[in-house]
């Protein structure tokens, strides 16, 4: 029990990750898929940020009298990853707009049916 509680950040990450992953797989709506993808990615960001925390560590800004800092590197990395995530989302949404223009729908089943009837 103690083990579970002490690693609560991992459990949180796993729950969010699975929620996102499930959304991507199960939803037929293209926008919802992208939302799911975002949630999925955010869980990974949280994972990184939480492992960067050092117990009792201070904010990594150099200040007199403090010797123990949190690790800043994961945050920096995740900043990059967030940018990538935003770009992915933007591109995905742009594609959805184009799909809506050509197919008139953003439901996967409808799109599939239209291409079958070609």
């Amino acid at each position: 029990m103690k083990y579970i509680v002490e690693h609560y950040n991992y459990w949180l990450v796993i729950i969010i990750m699975m929620a996102g992953f499930y959304t991507v797989i199960s939803r037929g709506n293209l926008i919802k898929k992208i939302a799911g993808l975002n949630i999925f990615q955010v869980s990974v960001f949280l994972l990184y940020i939480s492992i960067g925390n050092v117990k009792d560590g201070a904010t990594p800004i150099i200040e007199e009298g403090i010797t123990l800092y949190s690790n800043p590197l994961p945050h920096v990395l995740i900043l990059t990853a967030i940018v990538v995530g935003v770009a992915t989302t933007a591109l995905g949404l742009a594609l959805v707009v184009r799909i809506k223009e050509t197919y008139g729908t953003i439901e996967e089943d409808d799109i599939h049916n239209q291409d079958q009837s070609l």
């Binding site: 991507v24 898929k33 992208i34 992915t88 591109l91 594609l95 959805v96 184009r98 799909i99």
Partner: peptide, 11 residues
Amino acid sequence: QALTASYQYLI
């Protein structure tokens, strides 16, 4: 179909 193919690849 290029659009859907690209979307599928993106996901």
